[in-house]
Design a binder for these strands. Sequence first.
DNA 1: TTGACGCATGCCGATATGGGTATATGTTTG
DNA 2: CAAACATATACCCATATCGGCATGCGTCAA
Lengths: 119, 119
Amino acid sequence: MARAATTTDAFNAVAEPRRREILDALAGGELAVGDLVELLGLAQPQVSKHLRVLREVGLVDVRDDGRRRLYRVNGAPLQAVHDWVARYERLWNERFDLVDDVLGELEDAADEAGTGQGD
Amino acid sequence: MARAATTTDAFNAVAEPRRREILDALAGGELAVGDLVELLGLAQPQVSKHLRVLREVGLVDVRDDGRRRLYRVNGAPLQAVHDWVARYERLWNERFDLVDDVLGELEDAADEAGTGQGD
DNA sequence: TTGACGCATGCCGATATGGGTATATGTTTG
DNA sequence: CAAACATATACCCATATCGGCATGCGTCAA
């Protein structure tokens, strides 16, 4: 019991800056490992490792091309992240006064416990 | 040089499931540590530690209330996450045809010269 | 003041992470 | 066939994480 494996979900995979860079690079389209190595200035093994993590969580797909492997982004797993974060969007997008309102919705969605505990 | 400190940014802070749970709980409004302990069924020290991480990245604010400490969500740091993830929204929200198109071009280019884009 | 309560911190242990270097595997070329 | 190239793995190391337990510190109550 140390920590939640980083290869568990998109949240963890994306927590790594390098991995985000890789995804950003791949956002332009398929790229081979070597291309990423050049683009990001990382060592080849490191890139391969990060790509592996991204694969484990399904954030990238691979395609064999001769002796190269072309990686491509698959944003699907990011939907979960987006979905979760979106719930807090109002907290920075609108006035804080509305927070209470949103909270009401969230609570309502969660369950009807609705006992004025907070406050 | 092990890993990017988890207390670095919202991405890392939110990568922890427990921390997300805490934020979700706090979404209902201010809560004291003890409340979170009960709600999440975690040990008090663990909750305090997670709260600390969340504080480090500014995801929660604290308020002293007697011998209790009331925590409250501050979604601002999540904007960066939302912002980054949003860039990939179309990858799951829309058709992949556009992407395929781009990929086709890249493949073609790669097949000929090998690259030269990026940067 | 003493004691109970609420929370933060310190310390320990197990684990997994990320980088570095060397090397194995697979592919294309000569 | 061998040699060169592209990528994946293995192994080692330093580090930071997370959980569990004990304890310190501040606050309220009697």
